[in-house]
């Protein structure tokens, strides 16, 4: 049910765009930009994952592996074989899409948590392959990735660029790129949510049986969304690899998959802005907690646990609820 002004499509996108434009005034150095860029790329991944978790009610425990396949194909095909980054990125997305389809289609015919188990298995197999095939992937020590180039123009984080008479750092341009990618990701996701498919999906999250009774092929829709969310992960994985310049198998690990899911749930399932907030919080937390040294792990677990106990709907929806209560708003018009 989209009955809140806060969740209306244009409003959310506008808020996000505004934040992305205003944010640089608060960023004091390249380190801050660095974290912001990574947040943008991960947030776009998580927006895709949210389609699956928030709207199709399915859990993927292997999304980091899709992210990793995108990242590693970009690293290997551009680095070792000298392909051009953008075609590689698209090629990787197609490969990941096919993997997701082959796994998702039969599994999603079944009800229950089977997709989570299947993705766990696929994720681990991908991780093990990346970790073991040292000659191709560099093994556990990782592999370096060339910088991104678009139509022959290289975008290196460490270079400066003259654009329209201004000197812009590569980091700043990456910030712009990450911002644009995130807006694009959100825009596409919201279009999917508002499409007939999306409406069918929301019905699925409500009641699968009901959806089937009214003639919605839930399995097909769910596998479609699963493929889309996997493709999101792959594309962002490719960008992430080019941005950081060095990747290790950890980005494809089960732990990373768990982090991605946690971002969705912590921020607020089914709320696109919410999951982005989830990314921001989980990306900042290690930096904030870094000063606590030995206590870091304990505090991280405690914060995660308490947030979910007291805000079971996630950060943003809970805050929105509080805000609404506080403002004593009259009920919004339903959809």
């Amino acid at each position: 049910m989209l009955n809140s002004l806060f969740q209306s499509r244009q409003f959310g996108l506008l808020v996000l765009a505004l934040i992305i434009i205003v944010l640089p005034f608060g960023l004091q150095n390249d380190f801050h930009y660095d974290i912001a860029i990574q947040m943008g790329l991960i947030a776009a991944t998580v927006v895709g994952l949210n389609l699956l978790v928030g709207f199709a009610g399915q859990i993927s425990l292997g999304h980091a592996a899709f992210f990793g396949v995108g990242a590693y194909m970009s690293a290997i095909l551009t680095g070792t074989y000298g392909w051009s980054p953008i075609p590689v990125l698209l090629f990787a997305a197609v490969v990941v899409g096919i993997i997701a389809f082959v796994v998702g289609r039969p599994i999603l015919r079944l009800k229950g948590h089977y997709l989570s188990m299947a993705t766990l298995a696929v994720g681990f197999i991908i991780y093990i392959i990346i970790n073991n095939e040292r000659r191709i992937t560099g093994g556990p020590d990782g592999i370096s990735v060339p910088s991104l180039s678009i139509f022959g123009a290289e975008l290196n984080v460490f270079n400066d660029y003259q654009i329209l008479g201004m000197t812009l750092s590569g980091t700043f341009l990456w910030y712009v790129l990450a911002g644009v990618l995130l807006l694009l990701a959100v825009w596409i996701a919201q279009n999917i949510i508002d499409s007939p498919i999306g409406r069918a999906l929301r019905s699925v999250h409500g009641s699968e049986v009901a959806a089937r009774v009214v003639g919605v092929d839930t399995a097909r829709f769910k596998s479609l969304v699963f493929v889309i969310s996997a493709v999101y992960a792959s594309i962002m994985g490719s960008f992430y690899a080019h941005y950081t310049g060095f990747i290790t198998p950890q980005i494809a690990s089960f732990e990373h998959s768990i982090v991605l899911i946690t971002m969705v749930v912590l921020g607020g399932m089914a709320s696109t802005l919410g999951v982005i907030l989830g990314v921001v919080v989980l990306k900042l937390l290690p930096q904030v907690l870094a000063d606590f040294q030995e206590l870091e792990m304990m505090m991280f677990g405690l914060i995660l646990m308490l947030t979910m106990i007291f805000m079971p709907k996630g950060l943003l929806p809970t805050l929105q609820g509080l805000a609404r209560k506080y403002l004593r708003k009259k009920p919004e018009e339903g959809v």
């Binding site: 640089p24 005034f25 150095n29 390249d30 930009y33 400066d160 201004m166 000197t167 812009l168 750092s169 980091t171 700043f172």
Partner: peptide, 10 residues
Amino acid sequence: RAGFLAATLA
């Protein structure tokens, strides 16, 4: 700061 932001960062 906005005007010189990128330049100073670089």
